[in-house]
């Protein structure tokens, strides 16, 4: 009990410290923090699916795209308030996630990965070709979430989004359903034998994960004021995957560390164009092979070694 209260104080202090960080920073650094928070939302929600239920989806960036385009199109064509648009984008991503989940989650394994990869490509083709609605590669200019553009305000919006995402993930993995997630990940036959509805668990994780990606994408589109097919691209998907794997797949802190670490690093190696995604992918492969628990796992191992044997 005392330890739980202690942890909460640490948590509140860390969040308060982080919330104070952008004060005194220039707008470039505020921008880097905002983009990092977007990736926290993306990695944490993808980790819920891949890290906690073992379902490797390549459609996560596509769901962010659905959220972004749904919100952007409603704002520009119908004149819907962007905040309501974010809600609609989140809902749209959840609905697509649910439908795709029902359709393909019985398959699992490599088939799920292939189906989501196909879904991602189909969405990309639709966005590029239906340029009269989406403006394709030209980009859809959308209104911002606030009347007076302010990086500081967007930082707090994204911080709130990241906290909501992390709170949802935390709540789910620490509830009974979280045990079911783990059970399905470890051995789905054993889980089914113990009465766990494997497909239901997978669909739930897929839907929640998609909805959170949709929210992240919608917020990101209204922050950039421009939505392009880059948001639902495979580049984006592999960046999210790399961040999660390098940070620590299946751990709560791993995706957060991966998102901040790689986003800051990518600002330095941007001059190499798209090669930074390739470099991250290679590092992710090496990490997956030699340190499957990512940086968090390496850190834990290091701390365990330093601890004196009982």
């Amino acid at each position: 009990m005392v330890k739980a209260i202690d942890n909460r104080w640490w948590l509140a202090a860390a969040v308060a410290g982080f919330a104070a960080l952008p004060w005194g920073l220039g707008i470039y650094h505020q921008h880097v923090l905002i983009v990092s928070l977007f990736y926290v939302m993306m990695t944490a929600s993808w980790n819920l699916l891949a890290g906690y239920t073992g379902q490797v989806s390549f459609g996560h960036a596509a769901f962010a795209g659905i959220g972004a385009y749904a919100s952007g199109i409603l704002a520009t064509k119908v004149g819907l308030n962007p905040w309501l648009g974010v809600g609609a984008g989140t809902l749209a991503a959840a609905v697509f996630g649910f439908l795709l989940g029902v359709l393909c989650l019985k398959m699992g394994g490599i088939y799920l990965s292939l189906t989501t990869l196909g879904f991602s490509e189909i969405l990309h083709i639709i966005i590029n070709n239906e340029y009269e609605i989406t403006r394709g590669t030209m980009g859809l200019q959308v209104p911002g979430l606030i009347a007076e553009y302010s990086k500081l305000a967007y930082f707090y919006i994204f911080l709130a989004g990241a906290i909501i995402t992390l709170a949802v993930v935390h709540r789910l993995i620490h509830a009974n359903i979280g045990l079911n997630f783990r059970a399905v990940q470890n051995d789905e036959r054993a889980a089914a034998a113990l009465g766990v509805d494997v497909v239901r668990v997978r669909v739930l994780a897929f839907t929640v994960s998609s909805a959170l990606a949709g929210m992240a994408g919608a917020l990101y589109g209204h922050y950039l004021l421009l939505i392009t097919p880059q948001i639902p691209s495979l580049d984006q998907q592999f960046l999210v995957l790399s961040m999660t794997v390098i940070g620590g797949l299946g751990s709560f802190a791993g995706p957060v560390i991966g998102a901040f670490g790689l986003e800051i690093l990518s600002e330095y190696i941007r001059a190499y164009g798209e090669y930074h995604v390739l470099a991250f992918g290679l590092v992710a492969l090496i990490v997956a092979r030699f340190a499957p628990r990512g940086l968090v796992g390496v850190w834990k191992q290091f701390m365990d070694r330093r601890r004196p044997a009982a």
């Binding site: 202690d6 942890n7 640490w10 948590l11 860390a14 969040v15 982080f18 992390l166 935390h170 709560f252 802190a253 957060v256 560390i257 901040f260 968090v296 850190w299």
Partner: peptide, 9 residues
Amino acid sequence: MNKKGFVGV
């Protein structure tokens, strides 16, 4: 998430 994780971030 534990305190070490957040402080690390």
